[in-house]
């Protein structure tokens, strides 16, 4: 199961890195352009990002990190739930193997 979790994390990182490298203009940017069209360029955003990834590879890295954190927690919790299941099964088996005490 640990192997599965590792694979899941690696897969998510690879997929997310690949996607953010290949993706061009996002729909968010197109929405921003549309705001420019509707207001005929009359709108300037009133707030700026406090911080933005200075390089595109950093953005890719942070997107991948998000995917990795998620995939790791997801794999780990699934493992926990499965483990809990097995413990329950064993407990039930344990209980039912005992001969019923008929007075």
């Amino acid at each position: 199961m640990k192997k599965e979790t590792a694979l899941l994390v690696l897969g998510a990182i690879a997929l997310s890195a690949f996607l953010s490298l290949t993706a061009k203009t996002g729909t968010d940017d197109r929405a921003v352009n549309l705001i420019g069209d509707i207001t005929e360029g009359g709108y300037t955003p009133w707030a700026e990002h406090i911080w933005a990834p200075p390089e595109s590879w950093m953005e890719t890295l942070l997107f991948s990190l998000q995917a990795a954190i998620g995939a790791f927690v997801f794999g780990y919790t699934l493992h926990q739930i499965k483990g809990h299941d097995k413990r329950e099964d064993n407990r039930r088996k344990g209980c039912c193997n005992e001969p019923p005490s008929n007075p």
Partner: peptide
């Protein structure tokens, strides 16, 4: 024990919203 399931649901959102998918219109979502 619900903590596990909560974490799993949160992790699912984390993974899926990190997947920027390029699509037909040359945009991503």
């Amino acid at each position: 024990s619900k903590k596990t399931l909560l974490a799993m649901a949160g992790a699912f959102i984390f993974v899926l919203s990190s997947l920027k998918l390029p699509s037909v219109a040359g945009s991503s979502s």
